[in-house]
């Protein structure tokens, strides 16, 4: 699929969502953003500009609102979506080191996706698994008592697995 086709397809999804909300009704912004992200996995530039035109809001304003909340992302999810718990218990058990390791290994910041599309990184508040601290979650699967070394091994394993499956 070429980029052009992707854009066009996304555009129609956003258009369909926007038909459900009256023009210029600004208080519908967050529900619209949530729905677009639910359908597309992230908020694309095209989507934000389109929503802005529909609601009469500047793109900068929508970006401002969306970046206020952790739930919105501006890049598509990776094949492996890694969530790092930064809750109190995990913090005490040095989740900072785990997050820093991931940053270094993947060369991305939270909210971003690696260029090969394999990994995306997200920081979340307490996931309610304090007994497993520090905990990370890859595509919904929990990994307990993480250390920088364990984190590096996990990333390596995922990379190898992905290569075997022809990425």
């Amino acid at each position: 699929m070429t980029d052009v086709e992707t854009t066009q397809e996304k555009t129609t999804v956003v258009d369909r969502i926007l038909t459900e909300y009256p023009q210029g009704k600004r208080d519908a912004l967050i529900p619209i953003l949530q729905e677009v992200q639910a359908q597309q996995g992230y908020l694309s530039r095209e989507a934000i500009v389109k929503i802005g035109k529909h609601l009469g809001l500047a793109a900068s304003k929508i970006y401002g609102v969306a970046t206020f909340y952790n739930q919105f992302r501006f890049q598509p999810l990776g094949k492996f979506h890694i969530q790092v718990c930064r809750g109190t218990a995990c913090h005490v058990k040095n989740s900072t080191a785990v997050l820093d390791t991931l940053r270094r290994e993947l060369k991305i910041e939270p909210g971003e996706t690696t260029r090969d599309g394999l990994f995306s990184l997200e920081v979340v508040a307490c996931v309610g698994a304090c007994g497993l601290a520090p905990v990370i979650c890859v595509n919904g699967e929990f990994y307990a008592s993480m250390t920088p070394a364990k984190t590096r091994r996990l990333i390596e394993e995922i990379r190898e697995r992905a290569e075997e499956h022809g990425n």
Partner: peptide, 16 residues
């Protein structure tokens, strides 16, 4: 331009 981000990470920025 607008306020972007939250808390200590808040900054004035252009969209994206």
């Amino acid at each position: 331009i607008n306020f972007v981000g939250r808390g200590s990470a808040t900054r004035i920025a252009v969209a994206f």
